[in-house]
Write a protein that binds this DNA or RNA. Sequence first.
DNA 1: TCTGGGGTCCTAGGACCC
DNA 2: TCTGGGGTCCTAGGACCC
Length: 424
Amino acid sequence: MKPVYALFDCNNCYVSCERVFQPYLRGIPIVCLSNNDGCIVARSNEAKAMGIKMGEPYFKIAAQCDRLGIAVLSSNYSLYADMSQRVMSVISECAPASEVYSIDEIFALLTGMPGNLGEYCRQVKDKVLQWTGIPVSVGIAGTKTLAKLANRLAKKSARAGGVIDLAGHPEWIDSALKRVEVGDVWGVGRRYAVRLIELGVRTAADLAEKDDKWVRREFGVVLARTAAELRGTVCHDLETQPQPRQSCCCSRSFGDATGNIEHVAEAIREFSQTAAERVRNEGLVAGHIQVFASTNRFRQDVVHGTMSASAPLAPATADGARISKVALALVRGCRTFEKGCEWTKAGVLLTDLCGKGAVKRDLFTVADSRRSDALMSAVDAVNSRFGRHCVGLGLSAPEAGWRMRRERLSPGWTTRWDELPVVR
DNA sequence: TCTGGGGTCCTAGGACCC
DNA sequence: TCTGGGGTCCTAGGACCC
């Protein structure tokens, strides 16, 4: 039986999440910023029409936003994650199998389902809007890559009404491929796009027509799979069971640069506990830790520097106390810190992750004790109820200069009791 | 003055082994 | 004048995704 994939994708995801709880933002241009109020990461259709570009540093267009009356919001990831969960749960109940692909996308497997799948997906889309307030678009096709492409066209087409079904209309595939630039194909990034265009491959249709051996030789096996998927050959199956992650990184840009190693250490102490908490939440432990910091890579007029230090964690652990102790020791033992740099970013990377039950032990190491497990469970319980960093080891002041800027943050409408919307 | 964060996979090259 | 062959493992770097 021919496989059928549907890709559901939230329209302007973060903007739509904000609009659910601030209806006065509907119909006006609005953008959402990345962490530290750095870059534009989401735009409403009105903002797109005004020429606001994705990924643009905010400081460069702040005045323009002001002049054009564009509403600007700091990123509120706890809101977006919560809204995402609601959308995903509605859609996943409408299909026999599904794969959450990102915060705003989910693949649903519709293989063998009876009836008009385009019509069915339109009903699911309406249900998502009614139940969560989030508008979605849908692309349906025989491979994931084609479903992505169909979704892209569904978003742009006024006639499609948010749904394009290439599985039900294989005769549309050729013209669909011709209408999509090669750089907009899922799996073709900026570098590949430049080279492909130099080689005369301009559209998805051009890429699909290329000889498999040629693509493999010039670009490797990954792009060869993408090209095959455009021809209708499934190379990327649905991953219904999320694979256990291999690494966990917590890094942040600082609100204010600092030359003080103790400030960097403070940040890293907190990031290491956040990373440990994420790893614990997934029942994993880490066997290796790396800490790093860097200066502002964009500025020409300052001393540039990077520091990085790493150490094994033996036995592997997710104990925030142990991990933050090692992290601090790594920072303080790092010589490159002595160069008089202004640090603007730091982070912690946990790797060699494995299941908690699979920890290797030897005669000379002691596994995490039951006391450590109990302590971490208590910490997680308190923080889950009262907010992250409510309790922790050596916590820093909320107003510490290294903390990220979030000057236009909306309330935690769905995740914090004290920020619930009030109905009058 | 101000430029995000968090992932994965593939490949090439070096170290090391027999 | 001259330097094997074949394999594995690890790491760094480069590409991609959202």
